[in-house]
Each structure stands twice: as C-alpha cells, then as structure tokens.
Computed example of a mutant assay.
Amino acid sequence: MGFAFILPTSRRLLAGRDLAAEGRADTAARAAALRHDYERWSRWLLGLVAFVVTIVAGFVATGMVAIIAAFDSISTVDLVVVCAAAIVCVAGGTTLVVLWRSGRVLARAASTGLRAVYGGEDLSPSFWRWARVRLVHGEPRVLARLISGTLALLLAVGGFALVVRDLAAGASLFTLPTLLVAVCSALSGVGQIGGVMRIVQGMSAGDPVYARRHRR
C-alpha cells in the first residue's frame, strides 16, 4: 500500500464528525485514530526528507541565479542546473504544504475529539490528570516533531541573522539562498510545533489546573 497523507479510515471518520451523536467511547476511539494518523512516523519522515530536499535544491537554484547575475554570464549547464534545482525545490515545497494542510485537518479534528473526551471527565485535583498532559511531550512521535521543529527554528534564526548581517555589510552571493533556507525553516518549524500544540491543547481540557484557570 502506498503512502497516503490521510488514511482512508481517517477520511471516513472526518466525513462523519457528529460528536453530539456519539458516545464517549466512540469519540475517544475517533480522536485516538485521528491522532495516530497525524503522528505516523511515515508522515514525519516524509516531511524530513521533503524539507532537506527543498532547502538544498532551493539553495542551489538561488545560489546559481546569484552567481549568474554577479558574473553576467550563463551557460547551458547553468540553465539546466537552475531549472532542475528549481523543479526539485517546488516539488519538495509542495509536499511540505500538502503535509501541513492534511496535518492541520487531522490535528484539529483530533484536538476537538480530545477536548470532548477529557472535558467530560471529573476534573477534581489528580496528579495523573495533571501529568497526563505534560508527559505527552515525551512520547516518541511527539518528541521527534518537537526536536525537528525546534532545530528548524534554530536554523531559521541563524539564517535570518546571516541575512541581516549581509544586508548591513553588503549583500553577497549567499544572501538570497540563505534567506530562502531561513524562510523554509521558519515555516517548517512553526508548522510542526503548531500541530503538536493543537494535540496538547485538546488534552489540556482534562487538566484540572487548566480547567480551573479557564473557568475564572
């Protein structure tokens, strides 16, 4: 079976999202299935590969353009390299966008289900209820996304810092390629961490501390 951005079972669950007509156990099963689909290792690995391909190809394409512009000379080989790198960059970027859009759908639906499940629990003080929301960050599938998202944001910060330095000292051949890498990294990092935060937000409905604060 080939890769699917959203599994067929999740599509069926998304097509019939009537939480009011479901029992608590059905809602919990739906939320768990959607969350599992969102957190699949295959989605994370595809995103990692697509990210690396996008920034490398984008760096090559924009770098070649900068070199051609600086030396005011272009050969057939240069044109072929730029076109090939640009095509690969667009393909990788498109994959990242589709991953983000499908992930947003899954994470939103899972978060809604989790809020419905955990929000209906007894919210009296409990260490387990308090810890459950916080321990989710240590789950391997979630932790991997937090690490890769954080590294992408660090790469973005470093890239933007280099761009600012170049603009202050005078643009170089690496200014445009570095800017592209920084922008892609920032978007990737925000997308990954934002998805995790949606899941955590849904689970936080069962956190007595969170619930007490939002009732005030």
Rank of each mutant, 00 (worst) to 15 (best):
A171P: 02
R132V: 09
A168S: 05
L143C: 03
A156K: 06
R165T: 08
G138R: 11
L162P: 05
D166F: 04
F174K: 01
R129G: 10
A156G: 06
L151D: 02
R145Y: 01
L143T: 03
L176N: 09
V164H: 08
V136P: 06
G158P: 10
A161T: 15
S148T: 10
V164N: 07
W130R: 15
A131Y: 08
A156T: 06
S148P: 01
F160Q: 11
L167H: 04
L151V: 05
A131H: 12
G170C: 03
L135S: 09
A131R: 13
F160M: 13
A131V: 07
L153P: 03
L155S: 12
H137C: 09
S148N: 00
L173H: 03
L153N: 02
H137V: 13
L146G: 01
T150F: 14
L153G: 02
R134T: 00
R165Q: 10
W130S: 15
R132Q: 13
S172C: 02
H137N: 09
L167P: 00
E139L: 11
R141S: 15
S172K: 02
L167K: 01
S148R: 01
V163Q: 03
L155M: 14
F174E: 07
G138M: 13
A156D: 00
F174M: 11
A152K: 04
A144R: 02
L173R: 06
E139D: 11
P140C: 05
A161S: 13
E139R: 12
G159D: 03
A131F: 13
V157F: 14
L155W: 12
I147W: 10
A144T: 06
T150D: 04
L143D: 03
H137I: 11
L155E: 08
A131T: 05
F174I: 08
R129C: 11
G149Y: 02
L151T: 01
L176P: 02
L153F: 06
L173P: 01
A168V: 08
L151W: 04
A168Y: 05
A131Q: 13
H137F: 15
R165C: 03
V164R: 12
F174R: 04
A169K: 07
V133N: 10
A161E: 06
L146D: 09
A168R: 07
F160N: 12
R132L: 13
G170K: 06
S148Y: 03
A169R: 09
L162C: 08
V133Q: 14
L146P: 00
F174L: 14
L135A: 11
R165W: 07
R165M: 09
F174C: 01
S172M: 04
D166I: 00
V136G: 07
V142M: 07
G159Q: 01
G158N: 14
V142T: 15
D166M: 00
S148G: 01
V164E: 11
R129P: 08
F160R: 08
A171V: 09
L173M: 08
A144F: 02
V133S: 15
V163L: 05
S172Q: 07
I147P: 01
F160C: 13
L154N: 00
G149P: 01
A131N: 12
R165A: 10
L162R: 15
L135F: 15
V133F: 13
S172R: 06
T150W: 11
A171E: 11
G158M: 13
A152G: 04
F160P: 12
L143Q: 05
W130A: 15
R141Y: 08
A169Q: 07
T175H: 03
G158L: 14
I147F: 10
